[in-house]
Amino acid sequence: MRKIHIRVAMVYITAAILFLIIRSFVVPPTFGEYDWYRGDSVREIMELPPQHANATVCKDCHSERYDLWSGGAHSTVSCESCHGPSYSHTKDPIIVSANVDNSREFCGLCHAQNPSRPADFPQIDMDTHGNGNLCVVCHNPHSPWVFGGE
């Protein structure tokens, strides 16, 4: 073997070993725990805090509202669809999310006449229906067929 061959080979082998050593330090310990990814990543994603709670949690404190809502036509509309994400509120009631938008436009998001909507879904002509009054003047948003508003 010539000197040059041996030396070149030595440089390359050293580099390869160095690579493997660095690799063993740098690759996260849970990489490959399940498959070709970092096992900790699954746990990290699972541990992200939820923002939305659920109507059943709302019931614990707001039982009267809950009863009105669950018996009415808006019972399919989750509390948080209008009131916003409230998980932190359920953990600490002092945290209150922003007030509910009670504008006509807000109700129109669902109920404005739109030809793309299913025909059997209750829709109104925003220009004429209710003479421009706020919807909640007549309809109780928690149970819309209860008239007299909030």
């Binding site: 994603i45 805090p49 399919t76 948080e80």
Partner: peptide, 18 residues
């Protein structure tokens, strides 16, 4: 995934009114 692994529904499912 952080919700469904806790037994909750995804936020979009939760929010869908229909």
């Amino acid at each position: 995934y952080h919700r469904i692994t806790k037994g909750l529904k995804p936020a979009c499912v939760e929010a869908c009114p229909v």
